[in-house]
Amino acid sequence: MVSKGRTKLNRLLPTCLSLVLPAVLMCGGITMAQGTTPDAMGSGVPHFDGVQKSVSGGIVEAILFYIFGGTVLAAAIGVCVSKRVVRMATWLFGTLGGVAVLYFLLGANYLGVIQLIVYAGGTLILLVFGVMLTSKSPWVRFECPRGEMVVASVVSILLFASLTTVLVTAEWPAQSQSADGVRIAEFGKELLTTYLVPFEVASVMLLVVMIAAAYLARQDRDDSEGAN
């Protein structure tokens, strides 16, 4: 019964993926088009009216949020329930894509693009390569003890509940919505002025990581094996 369901799901996944990607692209285009219009008029300065207008006219946004937020959540839960690592990676792709759409919804177009390129195009591929290189079989499974599974579920649910409680009970400051259009220019300026040092440190870190990864993953390590 279970295995049958899994095979069914197995067949379902490619279908889902083929649906998700176009949906993401489409939604990104919609939100872009929606965001640019008021921003051009609002001259980049956040004001109360603009926010009100954006919120009030956000029925489309609400629909989109629920669709893609649901996608993200569903994919995350899919990761949780998957037993095989390849499937987990596939579900993760759904989550990442949904998050990218949410970025577009939140007016962070640049971040949405980055999310797709880095995660979908880079990290996920890396993970899949990792799976392939480390599995004797791509379908290999390691069963977690059922007791631990239960404990983990309880802890996760409690964590979610407590976080939600905090979020709900907290008094948040007065909300305003930032403009969309000019933010990318402001973003670039900030990144190369105020955050220049972290930026450079991040670049150096990437270099170090590149070397470190190459070093760690290289094939023949006679000396260390001799030591072992």
């Binding site: 905090v166 009970t169 907290a170 008094e171 948040w172 400051p173 007065a174 909300q175």
Partner: peptide
């Protein structure tokens, strides 16, 4: 929970805010 710093910070910004 009202002693939590984030909450304090929030309350100083706008006590009358309607929030969401």
């Amino acid at each position: 929970g009202s002693d939590y710093p984030v909450v304090r910070h929030a309350s100083t910004i706008g006590a009358s805010s309607a929030g969401i």
